[in-house]
Nucleic acid binder design. Structure first.
Lengths: 211, 211
DNA sequence: GCGTGTGAAATGCTTCACAGCG
DNA sequence: CGCTGTGAAGCATTTCACACGC
């Protein structure tokens, strides 16, 4: 089953919106309903759900519960994936905090840092280990996905070690492009890029407003 | 001048790579050169630079200095844009720290929080103000781009206030879709979505490996 | 009638491939 | 000859529009 990355992103959004709708007491949603909540179009929503393999078969809208089940099946095989954060600076702590509050789809089960002052402490419910224990713990807990929040200069060699011990997915917050072998998926999250984009497009929208 | 978002993102990358190359003593780069550093193709790089309006006219490669000048012109009109961070929790602090170290393209000139304990303090070189002063300071300093790092429940009404006082670009780190009038650009940066994507595609790549 | 499911058209982005220039 | 600049082809994604079922 092949899926465009954009569709996957939208499906993550739908999940959050569906949970909200469910809390509001709704049991089903129409495609245009979800479209409005997500800022897209109804056709887009229907196409996404079709790719998901989710069809309701009738005009009564999509049953929320069934959608959520199917999304969980595709996105995280029902049980949230175990993850780790590496590098407990400001950003690493923000990540730990963020994922300790968010739902159960993502469970951060270990944190690593090379600063001995941090090792052994528990932050946001997550134990911090020394990097020298990394290989052992990643293997023991079968952690396949990690977040890299270390300085740019250390990210590549860290990534090499991770790949070496079986990690297959990396969310890289360091501002360098990582080289990894095929079969390992890297998502590069660069806040500088994100903000330069905002700066550019906001200026653009602004200057077009003379039209 | 209209530009695909993807091209803008790549251009931000190119800038960083070009600066690195310059530090290494290079004065020019070939398209395949930049392609390799950025993980793309040479044709892609040439097309991007073409869209940028950057042509070197000959086979000697692109002069780095000129490229950087042109990129700065397009991305941040030479002088880095003044920005603000709102919400000084874990994530807000991480953002302040990140942008205090990064180059001068992005200058974070103010931080806001509603916790009186934080107001008046200086974090990573940036003064923290109370939210009640927000309108005044954003106007005084002509800040057009801000980062929202407050809880989801407060993000929308905060966005309304921001738009009201002239903000045209928002980087939204809260997990809600913001409604803004046309002419305001919002970039939604959702770490949960990013990580679910990694989880999904790493699993996918993994299961395809049997082929 | 109303909303879904889905071919088919439209749009947007990337890659190809080659002319042109130093 | 090697590399750029760019039309044109090739893909991917989004939107349209309409048949179908309740």
């Amino acid at each position: 089953m092949t899926m465009p990355a954009n569709t996957i992103e939208r499906i993550c959004q739908y999940r959050r919106l569906l949970r909200e709708a469910e809390k509001q007491g709704r049991h089903s949603v129409y495609s245009y309903d979800l479209a409005e909540r997500s800022g897209g179009t109804a056709a887009q929503v229907r196409r996404d759900l079709m790719l998901l393999g989710c069809t309701c078969g009738c005009k009564a809208g999509y049953p929320i519960e069934r959608l959520l089940l199917r999304i969980a099946e595709v996105l995280d095989k029902h049980t949230g994936e175990a993850m780790a954060v590496i590098g407990i600076g400001n950003l690493g702590r923000a990540l730990l905090s963020h994922f300790s509050m968010t739902g159960p789809n993502i469970r951060v089960v270990a944190a690593f840092d090379c600063d001995p002052a941090k090792v052994g402490r528990v932050l946001h419910g997550c134990r911090c280990y020394g990097v020298e224990e990394m290989e052992r713990i990643l293997r023991e807990q079968a952690i396949k996905v990690v977040m890299i929040a270390v300085p740019a200069s250390e990210a590549q060699q860290l990534a090499d070690r991770l790949v070496e011990c079986g990690v297959r997915g990396i969310a890289n917050f360091a501002p360098v492009l990582l080289r990894v072998p095929p079969g390992v998926y890297v998502e590069h999250i660069d806040m500088t890029v994100a903000l330069e984009k905002v700066s550019f497009f906001s200026r653009l929208a602004n200057s077009e407003e003379k039209a």
